[in-house]
Design a protein around this nucleic acid. Structure first.
Lengths: 212, 212
DNA sequence: ACCTGAACACCGTTCAAGT
DNA sequence: ACCTGAACACCGTTCAAGT
């Protein structure tokens, strides 16, 4: 019998379920139902649950539209990081998978390649180039992590944001609870400001190298 | 009947199982067996599976020994970030939980408080202070993420590290595969170098403020 | 070769009964 | 109050039988 589905179809259905019902809503059985088959059919396309979850990560990565290159490596770095950030953020329920499942497909690695490519044109030497890549990538993933499970993240959608930390710590964690109220006011610019700080350090290293 | 266990006991057993057998090894049933009880007994101490996982995260956070404060905020920031990094890294199997489960206990938030406290003494204004906190915290968590599931992480313990990316991408992801070989050579200093880049950007912002 | 129902070995948790 | 066995509703996956 011919193959009834394509891998891309399965990917799309899986990501759609995660987006719609959350991570717990994705099971072999629910995905099979979404495709109008029995659970066992899936095993003709995917090795098992774990491979399915990697497929979801690939599906998210595939939605990142890598921006066109310019002659400004710093701008390209910002663009690559921003594109990844926006896409990951658009699929909050998939973030736990994005953070913990590794990809080795070309599409899954494409956003990292775009970032690496931009940074390579900074002229940094190997060790610093690697550190810069690590720092920017970690910033993007770490910020996504913070939004899902970080200490300043609002608990429920409706809960007042600053309340949680403020109430629970009652002055025992003063620095953190102050930041918590700042966060409520500056949520919209946290990515840009944070990335600017990281990039400032990288640019400084790149310029120091040109100077010598 | 008196309470047979303390929460701390349960925490230690749970973390020990994760460290020893991996995340999949921790189930209500396996934890109960480790404590020589039935699974139902656990529900007297913990609301359910999810609360248990948060307890594991707290247990990891509790093992971070926050370093003593000095009069150098940048050094204290490095020390706070380093202490968190080393502890998280010492429990690789727990990293997926650390990344995805939120804590609201005081012990769970203590490492973040230490970091916030150090950065507060930089003199940065609110928005930049928050951005700096975000950047450093994201760097630490993002680097832990990269080690577990990032594009340059070795697949298996025995697999040659550069092979994976190199072989699979065969020149289609040139920048990334070059970084992959650099990574093999510089693994030991990636944290320090990356953090130095991030801190350079933060210090630059702090000095610019002093100058005006 | 690709498909897929039945069955198995798990899992978290509800319920109800113990002390 | 705190404990806990039995039972239930799931889950991923093996197996074997279909085409």
């Amino acid at each position: 019998m011919k193959a009834r589905f394509t891998l891309a179809e399965i990917q799309q259905h899986a990501l759609a379920i995660v987006d719609r019902e959350g991570l717990a809503g994705l099971t072999m059985r629910s995905l099979a139902a979404s495709l109008h088959t029995g659970p066992m059919t899936l095993y003709n396309y995917v090795k098992g649950r774990e491979a399915l979850e990697e497929l979801v990560v690939d599906a998210v990565a595939a939605r990142v539209d890598t921006p066109a290159l310019t002659d400004d490596w710093a701008a390209d770095t910002r663009a690559a990081a921003g594109a990844l950030w926006r896409t990951v953020r658009a699929h909050p329920a998939a973030v736990p998978l994005v953070l913990t499942r590794r990809t080795s497909s070309a599409t899954g690695l494409a956003p990292a390649e775009a970032l690496a490519s931009a940074l390579t044109r900074s002229g940094l030497a190997d060790a610093d180039l690697l550190a810069a890549f690590r720092a920017v990538m970690a910033f993007v993933m770490g910020l996504a992590q913070a939004e899902v499970a970080g200490p300043l993240a609002p608990e429920g959608a409706a809960a007042a944001e600053a309340e949680r930390i403020g109430a629970l710590t009652e002055g025992t964690l003063p620095a953190l609870s102050r930041l918590s109220s700042v966060s409520a006011a500056h949520a919209h610019e946290e990515f840009d400001r944070g990335l600017a700080l990281v990039l400032a350090g990288i640019q400084q290293a790149a310029e120091a190298r040109v100077g010598t």
